[in-house]
């Protein structure tokens, strides 16, 4: 085991690691649901980047990257989108309910 060369993969790997920290911080500390959802997506982006770096380093057999982690990222991105859409729907519905309870619908 030796230190990785400073190349694109390492650079994006470190970025992924930093993004995970940033996203986690936001998920834990933000109070608003929209902001937490954004933090979740930032964190997700970092995780996917790490998969991407693993794929890049696993390039071989004539492929520019290991196709398995790349395929996992595609699945992951779609699932994360669905989660975001479901959460947004829930947030909007909750806000509508709160508005109705406030009496007046104007903002």
């Amino acid at each position: 085991m030796s230190l990785a060369p400073i190349d694109a993969a390492t650079l994006y790997g470190l970025t992924g690691a930093v993004l995970v920290g940033i996203g986690l911080y936001g998920i834990v500390l933000h109070e608003g649901f929209i902001r937490r959802l954004l933090a979740f997506n930032l964190l997700g982006g970092g995780v996917f980047l790490l998969f991407g770096v693993i794929a890049r380093r696993g390039a071989g057999a004539g492929f520019s990257g290991d196709p398995v982690p790349q395929a996992l990222v595609i699945t992951g991105v779609v699932v994360a989108f669905c989660a975001t859409a479901l959460a947004i729907t829930l947030i909007e519905r909750l806000a509508a309910e709160d508005d109705a309870n406030d009496g007046d619908g104007s903002s």
Binding site: M1, S2, L3, A4, T10, G13, L14, G16, A17, V18, V20, G21, I22, L24, Y25, V28, L29, L50, V53, I54, R57, G58, A59, G60, A61, F63, G65, D66, P67, V68
Partner: peptide, 30 residues
């Protein structure tokens, strides 16, 4: 919380900086 997140980031950075050699890959199988 910031410190905890920084620790996790540092752990991941260590994994990135100290890769397994040769890097594992299923490219040939695929």
């Amino acid at each position: 919380v910031g410190l905890l997140c920084a620790v996790i980031s540092a752990g991941l950075a260590a994994v990135v900086l100290l890769p397994v050699s040769p890097p594992p890959s299923l490219a040939a199988d695929v």
